[in-house]
């Protein structure tokens, strides 16, 4: 699904440049649930941004489901993000003047799907995350866990190839974190490929594979025995 070869990225900070990613090589198969772990400054967010086409690598290749991702203009990048990727952010990033349903339907709107069809589909995904009754509430009327579920529904709605989650439990207490992770595991069980960036070991243990990043290189890449979230709740 994802093939990355020799990825380099550095940022210019005034006169000196900061080498963040120093040659990353890794592949993700279809249906994997991968945790990317590392302390802050290890380059994990940068890697995720590059995978999410929000940022561009200086060198190296990135192939997503057979499509080489390089030299994208903004319009094309937006198009790819819409079709191939679903984002889940730490701070939820819902649009606060739109209802849960509208938020979920946004990616479909950008695909120019007709209104009715779009709402039906968004409703289906809201139902899947268990928030059907909350569809007409604004984000401000939802709890943190509910917001993250809406965000997950939004990431899922366009049926992307890969879900990218950036510290998706960072703003949640451990009980809700586990609930959210349970949802993620269920989604993964249905065969979706998911990448989770986290620095919490217990969250990482709920994935099937952990990639450890340190100072811009992969130091450890291991398959783990998945801990089901349900048991912990």
């Amino acid at each position: 699904m994802i093939e990355i070869k020799d990825l380099h990225k550095s940022y210019k900070m005034g006169s000196n440049s900061l080498h963040v990613l120093k040659g990353i090589n890794f592949n993700v198969e279809d249906g994997e649930l991968v945790a990317i772990m590392g302390s802050s400054g290890s380059g994990k967010s940068t890697l995720l941004n590059i995978l999410g086409m929000l940022d561009e690598a200086d060198s190296g290749t990135y192939v997503l489901d057979g499509i080489p991702i390089k030299n994208l203009n903004e319009t094309k990048a937006a198009n790819y993000r819409n079709k191939f990727l679903g984002f889940i952010f730490q701070s939820f990033n819902l649009i606060n003047y739109k209802t849960a349903l509208e938020n979920v339907a946004l990616p479909l709107y950008y695909q120019k799907m007709p209104r009715k069809q779009r709402q039906e589909k968004a409703m289906k995904y809201l139902e899947q995350v268990g928030l059907k009754e909350w569809s007409h509430h604004l984000p401000s009327e939802l709890s943190g866990g509910q917001k993250q579920r809406v965000a997950i529904a939004r990431a899922m709605v366009a049926e992307p190839k890969v879900l990218l989650a950036d510290e998706l439990t960072g703003a949640l207490d451990s009980k809700t974190s586990y609930e959210v992770m349970e949802l993620i595991q269920n989604i993964n069980d249905q065969g979706n490929t998911i990448l989770v960036v986290t620095h919490e070991p217990d969250i990482a243990q709920m994935c099937k594979r952990i990639v450890h990043l340190k100072d811009g290189v992969i130091v450890k890449d291991e398959k783990v025995k998945q801990v089901r979230a349900k048991v912990n709740v």
């Binding site: 929000l54 903004e74 937006a78 993000r81 819409n82 649009i95 946004l106 695909q111 939004r154």
Partner: peptide, 8 residues
Amino acid sequence: IRRALGED
């Protein structure tokens, strides 16, 4: 956010 979700 909207651009991340793929608005052109």
